[in-house]
Design a protein around this nucleic acid. Structure first.
Length: 350
DNA sequence: AAGTCGGGGGG
DNA sequence: CCCCCAGACTT
């Protein structure tokens, strides 16, 4: 007798399985594909600018949040020429609040390159642009150029780790499996299908295996504990970082400094200094005011802000100085500085 | 290979 | 509280 309807899943995917998996996932995608603002145009021939901006914006950013910033960014810069011609402050203002601001700085630089030389016409050409890595180059070249490149992102990693019940999928392992499974006739649709599956069905916690088109081939489902794959990553501990900052002026019109370096680089913010080891906030305030220079004033309040790898405790003071003020609403600020300004704007209860 | 870089969603 | 998210770059 042939295998029963509830046939046990194969331990590994043979060529026949690969073909069946492709057909099952693409059929599912044909029924359930999400409607997203960068998914206009013909399959495999999408607008490269719109796809590119979306892929940068969606790096380490969930789609539901990314769409908000996407609409704002595309309204500000409808074409790559508009983006290339803009000053960096305008680009960061359009990116304000979205995080990982190096993405915006690199996208801006790359746009100036593309405005000169035209859009790349291959995976390798895209990969050469600042801010474009293997994932983004594969996504844009498959979606806009119909090039057979398999994306490797968090969704793909999780879907493939479960399909093969691999608890420790290395990047190379994931890429090899993704390359083997890619439907090279429809690379754009295939890549979007895997990512849609990972985002809506094969979710990190509580996957909806009952709705999954790949369930018959999924070794993690067969194991009875699909959410155990892949094993959680070890993460760096969160450090506590105490900081003092000063408000000179008003929350609407204040002295601001441009941040330099990797952390919030290019954004504006209240003048601030980290506390040295064992230093009191008052001592750090004196150092900060000596640097500006300014006269220290009253304590306004404290707040905390978490940034993945650090937990910032900011102590805010008033200060007085004859220094140029900025219209705060016109500048690009981090969430941390927005919180500090909101604290200063509150009446002095609490 | 390991660190660093924001901010928010969802269990 | 925890983990994760349409990753890329630096060291």
């Amino acid at each position: 007798m042939a295998s029963p309807a509830s046939a046990p899943p194969a331990a590994a995917l043979d060529p026949a399985d690969l073909s069946a998996v492709r057909a099952a996932l693409l059929a599912w995608f044909g029924r359930t594909a999400r409607t997203l603002p960068w998914r206009g145009g013909q399959e495999g021939a999408r607008d490269p600018y719109r796809v590119w901006v979306a892929e940068i914006l969606l790096q380490q950013t969930q789609v539901a949040r990314g769409t908000v910033y996407y609409d704002r960014f595309l309204t500000a810069f409808p074409t790559v020429q508009d983006l290339a011609a803009a000053p960096q402050e305008a680009v960061l203002k359009a990116w304000e609040g979205c995080g990982y601001y190096a993405r915006a700085r690199n996208l801006h630089r790359a746009a100036q390159q593309v405005a000169q030389d035209g859009f790349p016409h291959s995976y390798d050409g895209w990969l050469a642009l600042p801010g474009v890595g293997p994932y983004t180059a594969a996504a844009v070249s498959s979606l806009a150029l119909n090039e057979a490149r398999a994306v490797n992102d968090g969704n793909v990693r999780r879907v493939l780790a479960r399909l093969h019940a691999e608890p420790q999928p290395t990047p190379a392992w994931v890429q090899a499996r993704a390359d083997a499974l890619l439907d090279s006739a429809r690379p754009g649709a295939w890549n979007e299908a895997v990512m849609d599956l990972g985002a809506t069905v094969c979710t990190p916690a509580a996957p909806r295996c009952g709705a999954c088109p790949l369930q018959p081939w999924c070794a993690a489902f067969a194991s009875g504990a699909p959410a155990a794959y892949p094993a959680p990553k070890v993460r760096a501990a969160v450090r506590d970082v105490p900081v003092v900052a000063v408000l000179i002026g008003t929350p609407q019109q204040a002295v601001l400094e441009r941040r330099v370096g990797a952390l919030l680089g290019g954004l504006m913010g209240l003048p601030a200094e980290p506390l040295a080891s064992g230093e009191t906030p008052q001592a750090a305030l004196e150092r900060l005011c000596a640097r500006l220079p300014a006269h220290p004033g009253a304590f306004l309040g404290s707040l905390t802000h978490v940034m993945t790898h650090r937990r910032v405790t900011l102590h805010l003071y008033a200060a007085q100085a004859d220094l140029p003020r900025h219209l705060v609403a016109q500048e690009a600020l981090s969430r941390l500085d927005q919180k500090a300004l909101a604290l200063a704007a509150q009446p002095a209860l609490l």
